[in-house]
Simulated assay, not measured.
Amino acid sequence: MNLNLDGRRVLITGGSKGMGAAVVALFREAGAKVLTTARARTAALPEELFIAADLTAPEGCATVADAVNARLGGVDIIVHVLGGSSAPGGGFAALGEAEWQRELDLNLFPAVRLDRALLPGMLAQGEGVIIHVTSIQRELPLPESTTAYAAAKAALSTYSKSLSKEVSPKGVRVVRVAPGWIETEASVALAERLALQAGTDYEGGKQIIMESLGGIPIGRPSKPAEVANLIAFLASPLAATITGAEYVIDGGTIPVV
């Protein structure tokens, strides 16, 4: 399928590994002009595609916005992949001020700051697409360990919904993608660690994670490339009338009627 992304100027945050790397690879394959950002570049990323920055700080977001304007002359598509959690287990009592702030700084504020910096250019050209990667945990938080992460992703989703109402009439589409468990490098390491603790193998570790989520009907996590496929379609002209919506890709983890 031709996604008609050839020549489109695209910023993808968190593109050095995992799902972000899969999104970068797919947009490049489709002919887009891609820039991506993370704290450090991996060997797989050509230097000319990369902006080194810490997006948890306002200064890092400003660095990326300046680089996008200087190197691409603006942007047509922004994909906010950056996110994650470093909060400890132990429920609400284990989450102090620092833990809450870190989750918001990683999962909410980079999108807000970069949108604020780059949206004026999109509005001036009368078109653009912004995709916010949220999480099914905004609906299915795990109280033992992801309360702050889930709350930050819920805030991102609400912000995205409001933004879509404001800028869609002006030509800029805003869409959310909510993945479930994705088999990235980090999740593989988690499954292996749980397997070691439980005295089982990697497949057993995956089962432990799936059970903690209440099960995944298709029997496996999503692959990074599968999530990238959805994101690329939503960013493309083929999805020209889709805005303000959230698309869940979780293998059926969250039951629907």
Rank of each mutant, 00 (worst) to 15 (best):
T158R: 11
F50V: 04
G126L: 10
D66P: 04
E103D: 11
T37E: 02
I208L: 07
T42G: 10
I209T: 07
V133I: 15
E211V: 04
S157A: 12
V75W: 00
D6W: 11
S162P: 13
I12D: 00
L119A: 04
L142F: 11
I208R: 01
D201M: 04
T253V: 15
E166G: 05
I136D: 00
R8W: 09
P237L: 09
V256R: 11
E211I: 02
G18C: 07
L106E: 03
A239N: 11
V75R: 00
K206E: 12
A124W: 12
A21F: 03
S164F: 01
S135M: 07
F109S: 07
I182E: 01
M122A: 06
V256T: 14
E97N: 14
V23D: 01
E103G: 00
R176H: 13
F27A: 01
N69K: 11
P179I: 09
P143C: 11
V23H: 00
P141Y: 06
P255F: 10
R176M: 12
K17N: 12
L194F: 08
A155S: 12
G20L: 06
I231F: 03
S135I: 08
E127R: 14
G214E: 10
V81L: 09
A228L: 05
N69C: 13
A186N: 14
L104E: 11
R113C: 09
A32M: 02
K165H: 15
L72Y: 05
T56R: 12
L26D: 02
T13M: 10
V188I: 15
L95H: 05
G31E: 08
A225S: 13
P217M: 02
S160R: 01
V177H: 00
A93M: 11
A87F: 09
G91Q: 09
A232D: 05
A150C: 13
I131F: 02
G15L: 04
S168D: 14
P141G: 09
P120V: 03
A38G: 08
G251K: 03
A40H: 13
G199I: 14
L3F: 12
G215W: 01
N4K: 10
A186R: 15
I249M: 06
V248N: 01
I12Y: 00
L26C: 03
G73H: 13
S16L: 02
T36E: 02
R173E: 11
M210V: 05
T37W: 00
G219Q: 07
P120Q: 06
A198W: 08
L26E: 01
L118G: 01
P255S: 08
N107S: 06
L213C: 13
E166D: 13
P46S: 07
A57D: 14
A53E: 02
R138I: 13
A21G: 04
I218S: 12
F233V: 07
V133F: 03
K17Q: 14
I254H: 03
S236F: 05
G60H: 11
P169I: 10
L140H: 11
T253C: 13
P179Q: 03
P143D: 08
K170I: 10
D76G: 06
S187E: 15
G60T: 09
G205R: 00
E246C: 10
V112R: 04
R28N: 12
F27K: 00
A235F: 05
L194I: 10
P237K: 06
